[in-house]
Design a binder for these strands. Structure first.
Ligand SMILES: [Mn+2]
Ligand SMILES: [Mn+2]
Length: 291
DNA sequence: GTCCACG
DNA sequence: CGTGGACAACGCGGC
DNA sequence: GCCGCG
């Protein structure tokens, strides 16, 4: 079977292979999903380097993260050569068009993880991302409490924070910024800010990286702010039964969200047909940080 | 999903 | 010619 | 340097 997109012909293999065993979702359905969702994804993923999380045998078998684009990927898929901390070079995939998403999905990519910077300015992130997860199963309300506190914090700084489910356990609070500072500067800056917030709520928040030291507190994960680190792309599927999706929200919806997997392959298009883009103004809301 | 050494 | 097995990430914090 | 973590 073949599909033609953006003038590229993509050969689709094994469309009937089951990728989500429990729900019986096939590779063909995943490709159909990415075909339909691409227009919503592209504004957020375009011009960014991506790490592919691949499950060529479905989520019932082991998957892997894939950064170095293999030579057998087509020449039309853009690579960006980056130098790792250890000095080695790596050719990372860049998403520019719908065909890029579909090609990667054809190669078993279920989840797209994207850089916080764009391809022409890879050293400088254009958004802040804080990853908030429940300290224990079923404590999503703690995640929401943390999200609101971060929202207030950034709004008070004159910034415009947004919120999304990750489709896994928690949420991301994402704030657009002008790409003016390197990752290391940003990370130190946000860490200092969060340290103050933790002082205010020492029994609910922590910056402790070791799980067994968190003691029921929400880890305010700021560690995505580093060169080469990624976060899940908007509208990416997750490799979890039920095919949950990282979904952009309005702050006004958050009170009614009870878990991170509320939106999934079976209900997302109903939502999209009823709701205007909750992040429509995201790029317009990039502000300078006062560092 | 693709590659390739090996039978 | 067919196929089993190899392969496909990395940066940060803290000890 | 290595482990836990995402
Ligand atoms: Mn998370
Ligand atoms: Mn295979």
């Amino acid at each position: 079977m073949k599909q033609k997109i953006n003038g590229r012909t993509i050969e689709i293999s094994n469309p009937h292979k089951v990728f989500y065993p429990n729900a019986n979702i096939t590779k063909g359905e995943i490709l159909n999903y990415y075909n339909r969702i691409a227009e919503y994804m592209l504004p957020h993923i375009r011009n960014r380097l991506v790490v592919m999380q691949r499950f060529p045998e479905g989520i019932g078998k082991e998957g892997f993260y894939h950064k170095q684009v293999p030579d057998y990927f087509p020449e039309w898929l853009q690579r960006k050569t980056v130098t790792l901390r250890k000095g080695e070079k790596q050719d990372i995939a860049v998403v520019n068009k719908k065909a890029d998403i579909i090609y990667m999905a054809e190669k078993g990519v279920i989840t797209f993880h994207i850089w916080l910077s764009q391809k022409d300015n890879i050293e400088k992130p254009d958004k802040l991302i804080f990853d908030l997860d429940p300290p224990k199963k079923g404590e999503f309300s703690e995640v929401k409490f943390a999200a609101y506190k971060l929202r207030d914090l950034f709004q008070d700084m004159g910034l415009i924070p947004y919120v999304m489910t990750t489709g896994s356990k928690g949420v991301h609070v994402v704030t657009p910024i002008k790409p003016e500072y390197d990752f290391d500067i940003i990370r130190q800056y946000v860490r200092d800010i969060l340290t103050e917030l933790v002082k205010k709520y020492p029994d609910r928040f922590t910056l402790e990286p070791r799980k067994d030291e968190r003691q029921g507190r929400v880890f305010l994960d700021y560690l995505r702010h580093a060169f080469g680190q990624t976060s899940v792309a908007p509208y990416s599927l997750r490799p979890i039964e039920g095919a949950p999706i990282a979904t952009l929200l309005e702050w006004e919806e958050l009170p009614y969200i009870e878990n991170s997997q509320k939106y999934h392959m079976k209900n997302i298009f109903k939502r999209l047909s009823q709701k205007k883009d909750p992040w429509k103004e995201f790029k317009l809301h990039r502000k300078s940080l006062d560092i």
